[in-house]
């Protein structure tokens, strides 16, 4: 998570009012995993896909749902529910894929719903409450208070540190 500074110009242009993103803000993509709101820096996101055909990988760690084909590149899918220790998804809910890049490899995070792209003030992040589960503290970079819910900013490097 080195890119905590200014968003790339291209992205800034894409934001509705170009000047809305101030330096002390970071742009996040929000998503829902088993009713828990999560957010990842949008700069890490390469793609958002609907339900995909996923090939299972025998002997792989449980959180690894399999791999999928994204325009000729093989993407490893990680089920965020299982990764975060949340209950498994009902068979009738088809997961969305949030494709992120880490060290040149593409990974797809399987989530229940993808929300919106929003700028969040860096200042607005609260430290993890000490009562939070140790594993969650490890993968969360902080908590953002929103009117309706709390958003956990995920540390992608930690989320992908599987096995």
């Amino acid at each position: 998570m080195q890119q905590t500074t200014t968003p790339a110009p291209a992205l800034r242009d894409a934001m509705p009012p170009p000047r809305a993103v101030r330096d002390e803000e970071q742009v996040f993509l929000t998503m829902t995993v088993a009713a828990q709101g999560c957010a990842v820096p949008v700069l890490l996101v390469r793609d958002v896909l609907g339900p995909q055909a996923i090939t299972r990988i025998p002997l792989a760690p449980g959180e690894v749902a399999g791999s999928l084909n994204l325009r000729g590149r093989i993407v490893t899918a990680v089920d965020l529910r299982l990764r975060l220790g949340l209950p498994p998804r009902d068979a009738n809910i088809l997961p969305m894929s949030v494709v992120v890049e880490q060290a040149g490899e593409l990974y797809s995070l399987l989530v229940d719903e993808v929300g919106e792209v929003i700028p969040l003030p860096v200042e607005g992040f609260e430290p993890n409450p000490p009562t939070l589960d140790a594993f969650w503290r490890d993968i969360s970079r902080g908590v953002q208070r929103q009117e309706q819910r709390l958003l956990i900013a995920l540390d992608i490097d930690r989320v992908l540190a599987i096995g």
Binding site: A53, I57, P58, S67, I74
Partner: peptide, 27 residues
């Protein structure tokens, strides 16, 4: 043959993965 993702390297039963003609991924 494409190498597998780093998080799967310890699974020694596979030498890589690839995409088939029908677009599906296969180990």
């Amino acid at each position: 043959v494409k190498p597998v993702a780093p998080i799967l390297r310890h699974v020694t039963m596979f030498s890589g993965n690839t995409i088939l003609g029908d677009g599906s991924v296969i180990m």
